[in-house]
Each structure stands twice: as C-alpha cells, then as structure tokens.
Simulated assay, not measured.
Amino acid sequence: MNIGITVYPTYGGSGIVGSELGRELAERGHNVHFISSMLPTRLVELNDRVHFHEVEMMTYPLFEHQPYDLALATKMATVARAEKLDLLHVHYAIPHSISAILARESIKQKRFVPVITTLHGTDITLVGADRSYLPITRYGLQQSDGVTAVSKFLKQATIETFDFDEIEVIPNFICPQHYQKIENSPLRRELAPNGEKILVHVSNFRPVKRPLDCIEILAKVKAKGGNAKLIMVGDGPERAACSYRAEQLNVKENVVFVGKRANIADYLGAADIFLLPSELESFGLAALEAAACEVPVIATRIGGIPEVVTDGETGFLSDIGDTEKMSDDVMKLLNDEEMRLAFGAKSRELAVSRYDSKIIIPHYIKFYEQILSQSEQKQNA
C-alpha cells in the first residue's frame, strides 16, 4: 500500500506513535509518505519506503495567521495524486482530519483517497470538546472513512462527547527490542554516581502532565529517608516552575533536567521507578515504554492509564494530586527490592504480550484493508 501519514511533528504521543507506525509499516513492505510542516519526531531516517513531504506556508500581509490547515490540505491532495496514495491516515482530529477530508473531496473525480483519523486524547477531551470546535470535530469524525482510538477510555469519551461510536480501538505499541532494561548502564552511573535510585519523568511539561507533582513526590521521598534522584526528560511551559520548586524544597541537587532527548529508551532502561502524575492521559504511552523496560509506574488512576498499569501488580495508582500516597508507593518499591523487581518483570511481560508492535501493526493493516474494501464498494455502487 501507499500510505500518507500526517502528525504533529512535535514532542508528544501522537507524533511519536505516527512516526513509529510509519517506520513499522515500511519495514513490512509498504510505502509511507509523511506530510507535515517539519520532519516528525523520532523519524530519523528516510529511505526508499519512507518519504517526507514538507507543507509550505504562504506569507501574505492579509493573513494575520498563516492558514496551515489549507496549506496542509493542498499538500495532501498534491501528494495523494502524485504518489498514487491508497489512503490518508491522520493523527489528531483537529485540524488534520478536516484538512484530509478537504483534500479527499478536492481530488475525488481523479482519485478517491479514503481518510482514516486516529484519536489520541486531547484532540477529543480538550480541543474537540470545546464548544467552539465541537461541531467541526464531530464533522471530521463523521466524514472520515474510518476512525480509531488508542484506548477503550478514549472511545467511550468520544461516544459521550460527540454521540459517535463507529470507532475501532487500536492501542499504542512498543518495539520490545528497542525498549528493554539496560544492565550495567553507563548512563545510570553518570546520573546516579553515588548509587541513588533513579526516578524518571518524561513529558512535554504541560500543566496537564503535572510535572510539579514529581518534584513534590521527590521531596517527600527524601523526607522519608529515600535515597533517590529525579531525572526529568523533556521540556515545556512548566520546566522553569519545576526548577524553582525544587530549589524551594531543597532538592535541587537531586533533580536533573536533561531536556528533550531522542534516546528515551536509554533513560527508561536505566530507571528504577517511573512517575506519571498526569491529570489526563488517554493512554499513557510513556508508561507503556517504561513498563517495557521493566520499570514500575507510579501514576494517577485516570483515563486510559489503568489499561496500561495494573495497580498493585505492575505499579501503583493514586488520585490526582495525591503526592503523599505516591511518595509512599515509591518508598514501598525502594524499600522492597524483591517487590520492585517482580513489578518490573510483570510490567515487561504484560507490555510485550499486549502491546508488541508485532501484534498491533497487523491490526492497523487489517483496518486499512477493511476501509479500502468498503470505499471500493461505495465507489462501485
């Protein structure tokens, strides 16, 4: 198949999943064409089967804001015709599904290209649910030829918000060979030269991720006698506030901010415990990546996280903002090495048995074939 994929090329779950999906599809013999404003995150290599088409923006005095959605639609239509695409697969509903639908309609007399929209979370729970965007988001869902969601939670949230239930649940995935525990990690020795246990948080440091809670958890762990360092991977609007809060709580020397990193697996492979205190997660991709590296997860009991983290078996779940319980849970794992290792082993087992790319990618391919078959039947009717 010739597949067009559009993602936000920034540091976030939808961009990561879209990039990894394209790479996995190419490895299985499909041709993948990424259509975006810049090279998507984690897309580090282009080859005969992985192509990139940059969306060019027009600068014109009349436009206070550059019309990216229209530029994207134009590029999608151009690539679809030139490369004879079989389908367009867009990640994140707004504006990608609308742009893809516009592209499909603009060229349908020459070539019909079905549109598949994958919902990742905030495109539905925050952006799409806003009253000003709700009608156009519902239209995007209804006019897509196929819709998928990354968790059962997100499917249910979409049904409740948009009264739309024609949704296939295809969860996020990991490559077990890429995400695994690293024995005698040199990075671990660098980050914790004095033998401290390593707590890791990975996010885009937006308020919804509650990175400040990680600082609070560390401070409480230190007060309870825990010998730990907190490694904060990523960057975003809450970064400075986290640094200031660490200084206020006298744990600045125990917090390391490493910024955005491509080698996330190296940090997870060297970690002892992963912190994910978010107030909203439709799936929790970072938690899955940590689990695959045999790292127990301390997280909030919200959204799709319970589908990834089994409370009391692969990690511990708490209410939003309950940093006291989260710090207690960290201490349980720090004080009981046997429990921590058992949780880690079970995490890896469940991550691989449920979310291995060898299981999930064929699910996507089967869905593609189903949509293409349905579209062909409609065209011939």
Score class of each variant (00 low, 15 high):
I3F: 14
Y8T: 11
S19P: 08
E20A: 11
H33E: 05
I35R: 06
M38T: 15
L39S: 02
T41E: 08
E45I: 07
N47Y: 07
H51W: 12
V55A: 02
E56R: 15
M57Q: 11
M57E: 04
P61F: 02
L62G: 12
H65N: 12
H65C: 14
A71W: 13
T74E: 14
T78S: 06
R81L: 12
L85I: 14
H89E: 02
V90F: 09
H91R: 09
S97T: 11
S99P: 04
S99N: 03
A100H: 14
R104C: 05
I107Q: 14
V113S: 03
I116P: 08
H120L: 06
H120S: 05
T125S: 00
D145H: 08
Q156V: 04
A157L: 09
N172E: 12
I174H: 08
P176G: 08
Q177R: 11
Q177F: 07
Q180P: 06
N194I: 01
V202N: 01
S203A: 04
R206V: 02
P207I: 03
A219T: 08
V221F: 10
V221E: 11
C242K: 06
Y244T: 02
K252V: 07
G269D: 09
G269N: 13
A271L: 06
L275W: 04
L280H: 00
S282E: 07
A291W: 12
C293W: 02
G304H: 01
D322V: 00
S353C: 13
R354K: 15
S357H: 15
I359E: 13
I360A: 09
I365R: 10
F367R: 08
E376N: 13
Q377R: 09
Q379L: 15
